[in-house]
Design a protein around this nucleic acid. Structure first.
Lengths: 102, 102
DNA sequence: TATATATATAATAGTTCGTTTATATATTAA
DNA sequence: TTAATATATAAACGAACTATTATATATATA
């Protein structure tokens, strides 16, 4: 992984909401509206943060009906580094997600 | 390490010149003028990048005479993560540093 | 078909960032 | 003591970033 690419990936990781998205996705594939509820930020904000993570291919997306599900890209060259970073972060709980989606 | 602090550390790491500084410091303690020569960027640029790394305590400094020597902070909570990142970067060589310092 | 939901994107404004240039301070050497 | 070297910092400017607001598209439901 060259310096330029690593720079852009670390930039994508260097934001609290995106770190939280990565942390939750490391536990479970989630759709946008679930992330909106979990992170308690606006839908456009979640979409824009996901875009940054998509641009550097840290996450993958899969459309199912109305929903778009996001997962950590576990074949990314820096996937082990990402998990290492997540392991240093506070434990978060993935409580029952209130069915606000729908 | 909380999300806010991790954000600021990843931001400090998310820049090519700073990634190179970290990479070289992982091999050897170096003074500012040596980094200026190795990275081939201006002295104020090196000093400002070092400041960002100092602010998040990724590096430590030690003044000896006219020179200020910088080292990786190996007791930083994220030191293992930093080494993990460095291990994914291209190998760099620390050739004889022409004695431009002095 | 009309409406509601899920999502993405664009425009805007305020903020942070990186580079350049100029300068100040400390230390050493002449 | 004067000059040179090593370093830090500040100001200025353009670029990149983030949040907000508005809107467009796709899909499902009534």
């Amino acid at each position: 992984m060259d310096f330029k690419k690593t720079e852009s990936i670390l930039r994508a990781l260097g934001e609290q909401n995106r770190l939280k998205i990565i942390t939750y996705l490391s536990m479970k594939t989630l759709c946008v509206c679930e992330l909106v509820e979990i992170l308690d930020i606006s839908q456009p904000q979640v979409s824009q943060h996901l875009r940054k993570l998509r641009e550097v291919e840290l996450v993958t997306e899969e459309k199912r009906g109305r929903w778009v599900y996001y997962s950590l890209n576990n074949i990314h060259a820096l996937y082990p580094v990402v998990l290492h970073i997540v392991s240093t972060l506070p434990l978060v709980q993935l409580n029952e997600i209130r069915a606000i989606c729908d």
